[in-house]
Amino acid sequence: MAAAKARLAVHKFSSCDGCQLAFLNLGEDLLRLAELVEIVHFAEAGPVDPEAPVDIAFVEGSISTPEDEERIRQIRKNSRWLITIGACATAGGLQALRNLADGPGWIAEIYAQPGYIHSLATSTPIAAHVPVDLELWGCPVNGRQVLGAVRALLFGVVPALEQDKVCLECKRHQAVCVLVAKGLPCMGPVTLAGCGALCPRFGRDCYACYGPAENPNAAALGRRLEGLGLVPEAVARRFLFINNGAPDFAEAGRHWQEQAHDPEP
């Protein structure tokens, strides 16, 4: 007797939809995935049943409205494993920059009738609201990451995630270090591996879209960036970018913003 297929859902919150493309760009693997598991909710691909109980729930996007807060609690109740995909779900996304500023004031500047816009002042990661079983970093995540997670969970194990820094990926690819060789403000030394060191291999500096690696030495990198000639404000911007809400980067960013406004003697 065949066991029942595992049930899978892909939910979306505030995001660019780019992490869902890790599924939609799988090609024929997408059809194979649809055979392997039962996709019960994935609005962009067709199936709509947001309240269905599932084994695996992938969540894209950050929480930025009162309705979002309620919806994610319901998803948590209905899901055996809840996995965040991408920078928005895992760290609040680029839009978490509003947490550092005046969200309501900004809305007033963009919309003539700000009263029509229902939004929280903050954009926060899923884990700030409910327990998360697995976090897949990256802006965007790729097909290998999401398929790897599904496969492992189907075998009943939690997948082993990347912990290395981008620097190690550069070494594996024998890419020339852009920080040393070109003096570029590369974020590779503090950034989680997984992208394949795309930016350094294209001759440019990493901008930390995969978020902080394990034990990142953000203080040392910040001083190095300053040594390359970046003013404190610019060092702060390097940390406060795609994953500005990740605690290690948020702290480093705050430090360098303070340096910009009130430099140490």
Binding site: L97, R98, R237
Partner: peptide
């Protein structure tokens, strides 16, 4: 359309 606003035009201000 009720996808929450992501305020990109404001994030861009002050960026290089």
């Amino acid at each position: 359309i009720f996808e929450p606003p992501r305020l990109f035009e404001k994030f861009l201000e002050g960026r290089e």
